[in-house]
């Protein structure tokens, strides 16, 4: 009799542990997936930048420094490995891009260029996609980290060595904003 009761209790506990473990794994995968979404968009921006440089270089001969800043920030961002490094490098790229878009204001010819206008829509959209995927990623991370911290899932998380994920925050407050692309 006692054996049966013990078995039942053991069984219930086992189901409980398994379900929490599974939900933790699912959440961790969602975090990974959200991260890969950001990656896709960041890559897209990296791909767009050479196009942009090609389009504007004829117009902006006197802005070598601004353009070089973007190119070097881009190559640094492409080389970054960890979440923290990446956030920092992308922050720098953001800063360089917003400076560039400020400078563009002085070039009415460029602003009238059809090619530039469609690139501008693509860049705006990519910037938005980056910030929205970051938003989605951070939401997932918050949810996952909460789950790891609260009882009873913290016990299972500790047992199976689930680690908290890093938020993707742009470190420098001045560079937090996505460059404002406004040519009106």
């Amino acid at each position: 009799m006692e054996l049966i009761v013990l078995l039942i209790i053991f069984f219930i506990v086992a189901i409980f542990v398994v379900s929490i473990y599974n939900s933790l794994v699912r959440l961790r995968n969602q975090v990974k997936n959200a991260w890969s979404q950001i990656d896709v968009q960041l890559k897209r921006r990296h791909d767009l930048i050479p196009n942009l440089m090609e389009t504007v270089k004829g117009y902006m001969k006197h802005e070598r420094e601004t353009l070089e800043n973007i190119t070097s920030a881009r190559s640094r961002a492409m080389g970054a490995e960890t979440v923290g490094d990446k956030a920092k490098a992308e922050g720098e790229l953001n800063g360089a891009m917003s400076k560039f878009f400020l400078v563009v204001e002085n070039y009415p010819d460029l602003k009238a260029n059809q090619n530039f206008l469609s690139l501008q829509e693509e860049l705006t959209s990519t910037e938005n996609k980056i910030s929205y995927s970051r938003q989605a990623y951070n939401d997932q991370v918050l949810f996952f980290n909460n789950k790891i911290e609260v009882f009873p899932s913290n016990i299972i998380a500790g047992m199976f060595n689930f680690k908290q994920s890093e938020f993707f925050e742009i470190s420098d407050p001045g560079e937090r904003d996505v460059p404002k692309v406004d040519f009106s």
């Binding site: 979404q37 469609s118 938005n128 996609k129 929205y132 997932q140």
Partner: peptide
Amino acid sequence: HPQLFNVVEEMKIAAS
């Protein structure tokens, strides 16, 4: 309408 598609994709990402 490229812009419409871009905007839909942005919101798809935001809503995961």
